[in-house]
């Protein structure tokens, strides 16, 4: 599967919230592979790529968190100048817009990777394939 499940969690901007959420993940033996927070004045959205999204989502929901699974793409980058530019070029040429993105380290060969949230995953995946850009599959994420 080239589509990756990202977990998004609503968090209020107040002390202790991140601590509480990471503890839930720890208690459920969830490995965090990538993480990012979008923040506004009053609230934030915690975005996670984990080794077991279903389990993580259930654990957070059981703890009364507001959770949403979102489809994203994980893209393997050539770890050299211009690696990300190539990806952006491809997206732009195909009129795909990026909602947000964040980086993480792929354990494979020390290569860089980005999580990409776009408006059309299938179109983006096809475009990447045509441009010779590698996507990380959900299976390989689980093994990370």
């Amino acid at each position: 599967m080239i589509i990756i499940k990202q977990i998004s969690v609503f968090i209020e901007n107040k002390p202790g919230r991140l601590k509480a959420m990471t503890k839930i993940l720890k208690d459920n033996d969830i490995d965090i592979l990538a993480i990012s927070i979008a923040d506004t004045k009053d609230f934030g959205i915690l975005r996670l790529i984990v080794n077991d999204p279903e389990k993580a989502s259930k654990a957070l929901k059981d703890a009364e968190c507001t959770v949403k699974m979102t489809d994203v793409l994980a893209i393997q980058l050539e770890d050299r100048p211009g690696g990300l530019a190539k990806v952006m070029d491809t997206l732009f040429d195909n009129s795909i817009s990026v909602e947000y993105m964040y980086a993480f380290f792929s354990k494979q060969d020390g290569q860089a990777a980005v999580i990409l949230r776009v408006d059309d995953n299938d179109k983006a995946a096809d475009a990447m394939e045509n441009a010779g850009i590698k996507l990380i599959t959900s299976e390989s994420i689980k093994k990370m």
Partner: peptide, 15 residues
């Protein structure tokens, strides 16, 4: 209180 129906992964849609 935010409900699962209201929640989204993008800041823009929450705003």
């Amino acid at each position: 209180e935010i409900s699962p129906e209201m929640f989204s992964d993008t800041v823009k849609s929450l705003e």
